[in-house]
Amino acid sequence: MAKTPMAATYEAIGAHGAAVDPDVALMLALARGDESAFEELVARHQSRIVALIHRFVGDEAEAEDLAQEVFLRVYRTRDRYQPKARFSTWIYRIAANVSLNALRSRGRRRNISVPLSYEATETQEGQTSAHVEDAHADRPGARMEQEELRTQVREAIDQLPENQKVAVILNKYENLSYDEIGAIMGCSVMAVKSLLARARTNLRERLAHYMSTGRMRQSLA
């Protein structure tokens, strides 16, 4: 019996071919000129993509701008779209690349505009904890403490090397498996395991001051 176009499509997806991916079907409908399929794709993914990018850049307005760019990139490829992986894998990869590019260009701007003393605190490993401790010498109210903690978490993630940052965000906030992260990042499961192990170690050192339990908090007190 001849294969249907959709069956052939899913077969082409490879390892994920057995799973029905409605996003791939929508993308193929868009490729055939069904513009409503794009609207459906945006509706299905906008929250996750904006949130994902927000984890990288830390600014809501910028996250929305970059998410728009992600969806436009998806739209632009509609005529030559070939489903080789799950749609979510593909769009996460685009989102991660767009985010990292934005951070790189921001980093170039920061190198010009940020005072040297602040920059030194930001870029040297091992300095963050001391910086945090100084900032909390005079503890403000609970709300400000919460805000401060949020800022420190944000900075701790920002200071991770790029590949560790991507792995952490995809694993922690998107609940993706090592296999899925590897597919998005284009690396092996073992590499993802290594990245996440090192990222956890780095984050633990940088956030030690805020741990409610454990020896590291005691040692800093």
Partner: peptide, 13 residues
Amino acid sequence: DELKETWRLLDEL
């Protein structure tokens, strides 16, 4: 426990 706590702190974002 420290690794768990570190991961929990990331929920602050």
